[in-house]
Design a protein around this nucleic acid. Sequence first.
DNA 1: ATGACGATTCAAAATCGA
Length: 268
Amino acid sequence: MALSVCTWNVNSIRLRMAHLDRLVEALAPDVLCLQETKVRDELFPLLELASHGYVHTALHGMKGYNGVAILSRKPLQDVRTQSWCGREDCRHISARIDGIEVHNLYVPAGGDVPDAALNPKFAHKLQFLDDLGDWFAASFGRSDPMVLVGDLNVAPLDTDVWDHKRLSRIITHTPTEIARLAHLQSTLGWVDVARRFVPPEDHLFTWWSYRQGANGTDWRTVNRGRRLDHIWATAPVAETATAFEVLVDARDWLPPSDHVPVVATFGV
DNA sequence: ATGACGATTCAAAATCGA
């Protein structure tokens, strides 16, 4: 049985509702994992979603910031939310779908200064990644069928950013974060599904800043992107992956999110 | 080296994103 899982940081779901038509037309994912929904659960536009067939929903939102959601055409079981670093900030929700544990995550951005001693936001990001790894290691095993998706706010490979040397001092691509992400990835032997389909030597981006491409310059031409949105799977699921795609065109859907949808298909 | 944008919020300037 095949299962396609899409992740997308929408940067406010209420401003992107019309985009869901196009997303469904382009990808028709079984499961849609959203981040930065920026809406309380009571105000989430569920009715419009039902018209796309996403009648199984799990929401974890708050006012103004963060917020995650799982929208599914298949039933959700054991919906759970988790928080770390002593905060209730709506950065995780999970559900079991077709026997696969799907975890949807929004990792803290980390602010501007890449020094945990000077910047509490960066300290939070690092702690979050560490706590996440500890929690996965304590709660699951490497042979459990699991998928982890979301905006991890780290671009780990040199080719995950438009200029490795220049971005190495910029949060999302500092050696410190990359090491913490690598440790998280090692906890359950998570496979970076994207790089099973796109060779590590090729550039691959899922995010382009709002601040580039202004003044008539096209973001696509400038192409100063980063790969911040990820799909990971444990080994037994990863080896069933049959397709992967980054929907780059969505960066032009007006008004755009600065992230684009990423989708993978699992199952034989 | 700097600034380039966009979304949200006790509603205007501040905060956050990355």
